[in-house]
């Protein structure tokens, strides 16, 4: 069972108005620079010891958000405050000590391990970089980590190609644990794995969290798995965070039309439920982030789109304690809709 702390929560990571734009150049004679707003003004908080899930379809900016937090990408604008320190403007050498505390697990267990290094060296590399251990001690740490993720110490001398997908993902996890991090960004850690192996890895991540007091940012597109592992969930659409709530609340009581559609789109492995449930099928595709719709970005596919949606961009409002949604339809706890608050200001 999951233990959930109701006591005062300590903030570990605060993301404030984070923006990450990529620029694409086109045109041969007259160069034409266009901004792709991959992450556009996203704010959220992650508390110590919890798992924060980030879901959305491809191109919504969930992976970019994760990579920008750890500064694999430079921040275009906004703040990333980790344990009181603002990472967004630090130089590479300033950020190095924080890299030890924030680690990342990647999606593709085939591409994220160096094929020319032994498993032992892959795991030990971060120990070397941060000068944490040498010689026998380093070896002990590597062996310990391998056993911790369900492999054995004999595996340290082998190369990544000798392992299956699930085992490689375990190696990736062992690597991230080597420096004793506080916070791990899991970027679709199970999407590339088979169903029966996914459960192995998820259970392991949960055990490690309990044992080592880790905090996770869990990025995925598989909503049922995200619900299973997360305490709170943020839903992203086209670079924007559209809804944030505790995971049960989000699934039982989704407020944003996009979240509602996303939830109803999940194929349910239960024939009776599947036959009786009515799917909200969204029309069309996700618009291009180069030229997003005006106002609310979801309005082109929204069933409830109104006049105001094309003119005013809705912001995240706390509509119930701990439940935020960015939609003109939502009313806050006093029953005032966002539309009215805008007019009163």
């Amino acid at each position: 069972m999951e233990q959930r702390t109701e006591s005062p929560k300590e903030v570990l990571l605060e993301v404030k108005n984070l923006k990450k734009y990529f620029y694409s150049k086109s045109g041969f004679i007259k160069s034409n620079v266009q901004a792709i707003k991959a992450v556009d003004d996203v704010s959220f908080t992650i508390y110590k010891g919890e798992t924060f899930g980030l879901v959305g379809e491809s191109g919504c900016g969930k992976s970019t958000t994760g990579r920008t937090i750890i500064r694999l990408y430079d921040v275009t604008d906004g703040d990333v405050i980790f344990d009181g320190a603002n990472l967004s403007q630090m130089t590479q050498s300033q950020i190095r000590p924080y890299r030890k505390r924030i680690q990342m697990i990647f999606q593709d267990p085939y591409a994220s391990l160096n094929a020319r290094m032994t498993v032992g060296d892959i795991i030990g590399e971060s120990l070397d970089i941060h000068h944490l251990a040498k010689g026998k001690e380093r070896q002990e740490i590597i062996w310990n980590l391998l056993e911790r993720v369900g492999l054995s110490k004999e595996h340290a001398n082998r190369y990544p190609h000798e392992f299956s997908g699930g085992q490689r993902q375990r190696i990736g996890i062992a690597r991230s644990l080597a420096v004793n991090p506080d916070f791990i960004i899991c970027d679709e850690p199970i999407s590339a794995l088979d169903v029966s192996i996914q459960a192995q890895v998820v259970n392991m991540l949960q055990d490690l969290q309990k044992e080592m007091g880790l905090t996770y940012l869990f990025i995925a597109h598989d909503l049922s798995m995200v619900k299973h592992i997360s305490d709170r969930i943020g839903v992203m659409y086209l670079g924007k965070l559209v809804e944030v709530a505790s995971s049960d609340e989000l699934y039982d009581n989704p407020k944003h039309p996009y979240t509602q559609a996303l939830l109803s789109a999940i194929p349910i492995p239960d024939p009776d439920v599947a036959k009786n449930s009515h799917r909200i099928v969204l029309e069309g595709d996700v618009p291009s982030p180069m030229n997003p719709p005006s106002g609310c970005r979801f309005r082109t596919r929204c069933r409830y789109a109104m006049d105001i949606c094309s003119k005013v961009e809705p912001v995240l409002v706390e509509i119930e304690p701990g439940h935020f949604s960015a939609c003109h339809l939502n009313k806050n706890s006093e029953g005032v809709s966002f539309q009215e608050t805008v007019q009163n200001d």
Partner: peptide, 25 residues
């Protein structure tokens, strides 16, 4: 049975631990 148990159920409010199938194919 193992396959069915290793996928999380959405309507399941109590977070039961997933039951993985150990080992590899």
């Amino acid at each position: 049975m193992g396959l069915l148990k290793s996928v999380p159920k959405l309507n399941n409010d109590k977070r039961e631990r997933l039951v993985p199938i150990d080992g590899t194919p």
